[in-house]
Amino acid sequence: MSLHEKFREQFVATATQRFHTITRALDGAHSNAMLDGVASELHTLGGEASLLGALDIADLARHGEEAARERRPADLRAVLDQLEVAIFAQDLARSGT
């Protein structure tokens, strides 16, 4: 089994958890502290995705991080929609569907 395969399940679980943390935070008021927290979560997700070689997720996470740091919530929402699909695709690949 390749290293990518070995860690994909753990990555998908972690990425899904981080995604839900982010969307829950965005459901509340958009304070600067909240957006900084979202940016930090996306940054960590991007690093994990880079290590796994999930470059589409890494790229989206980076764009989302920038949007959060630059206080562009509409752009952030758009990136998160794409991110959800990309994480789902990793999950499908993991389960061989």
Binding site: F7, Q10, T14, G47, L51, L52
Partner: peptide, 15 residues
């Protein structure tokens, strides 16, 4: 040193 548990696990495996 890394705040991500997954990143530490993968780096450990690589190193």
């Amino acid at each position: 040193v890394d705040d991500s548990s997954l990143a530490r696990t993968i780096l450990r495996e690589i190193i």
